[in-house]
Amino acid sequence: MTTATLEKIDHENYSDDYIRSILRKVNVIAMVGASANWNRPSYFAMKYLQQKGYRVIPVNPKEAGKEILGERAYAALTDIPVKVDMVDCFRASEAIPPIAEDAIKIGAKVLWMQLGVRNDEAARKAEAAGLQVVMNRCPKIEYGRLSQEIGWMGVNTRVINSKRQRRI
């Protein structure tokens, strides 16, 4: 009953397995729109993802050449000298298409758009180029939810687990 073709992703409702598979396989994340300001959401997400073992490379023309949380920032995705697995976008929905094009160009496997960010046209192009796409989600929140860590804040993780292990 299984098919070899890519499953059609429902961008309104991602399965836990879909999100989990992405968070398990990526190592290097380029964060477009990463802020150097400690009280911005992107800084929160970058710091958390670093704690979970991801390498996060900031992309922000205003910070290019400077460091954020110990990582050198670049002006554009195409300037990053190492292989990037996932591109995480802290940008407005209308700013996504050129970022998606660059993500395809640098061989990223995942295009991720943050909470409140959605661009279906860019998503379609990225998927056509073989990338997995997530829109309107935060990887920090999803990691915290699937690991049940976010439950410490009373958040409904929707995860039921009868095992001792906590893993995403």
Partner: peptide
């Protein structure tokens, strides 16, 4: 530089 239209996000995530 931050995401906009949180309202859309909230309603879309309700279900």
């Amino acid at each position: 530089m931050e995401p906009k239209n949180k309202a859309v996000a909230a309603s879309k995530r309700a279900a």
